[in-house]
């Protein structure tokens, strides 16, 4: 769709807002509908939209194979890591309240934040990867 100037212009205006909304959905998941999974999907979708409009090659320039591969495992690592930190802090696995971050309530809140971010990173990276690996590229 590289040659459609309307699509290109609209998308280059829209994509930052889509990404901002994705971050909002992740960050505000604990007080409104949404959370890591939905936010991650929206974030992934914004990159997919970019790749559809500006071509697969420039999409891969923004999010390289190396980066998306790294992010796929980084998200799960963050999730599991928060759980392990809770063990080191003297609690059970994934017992966020035990993390040494102020009161129990605040620690639990921040722990949930941490794992939501982990989920969002993995989901976004996996969606991007599935799209780039399944869709047909220009040169094949």
């Amino acid at each position: 769709m590289k040659e459609h100037i309307v699509v290109r212009t609209v998308c280059s205006i829209l994509i930052p807002f889509i990404q901002l909304f994705a971050l909002y959905v992740v960050a505000n998941g604990e007080s409104s509908p949404g959370g890591g999974f939905q936010g991650g999907v929206i974030l992934g979708a914004s990159i997919i939209l970019y790749a559809i409009v500006f071509g697969m090659k420039s999409g891969r320039k923004r999010v390289s194979e190396r980066l998306s591969d790294l992010l796929i495992s980084a998200g799960v690592l963050i999730y599991a890591g928060v759980g392990l930190l809770a063990i080191f802090a003297g609690g059970a696995y994934l017992e966020y309240g035990a993390l040494p971050l102020g009161t129990k309530k605040l620690a639990s809140h921040l722990g949930i934040y941490g794992i939501e971010i982990g989920v969002a990173i993995t989901v976004a990276a996996v969606m991007i990867t599935i799209f780039f690996e399944t869709a047909r590229h220009e040169d094949d």
Partner: peptide, 20 residues
Amino acid sequence: TGVVNFVTAILANYRGYDTL
């Protein structure tokens, strides 16, 4: 859990293993 939306609380805290 310190979280208002209890869907998120269930997913992330009460059922944290499932979400993992």
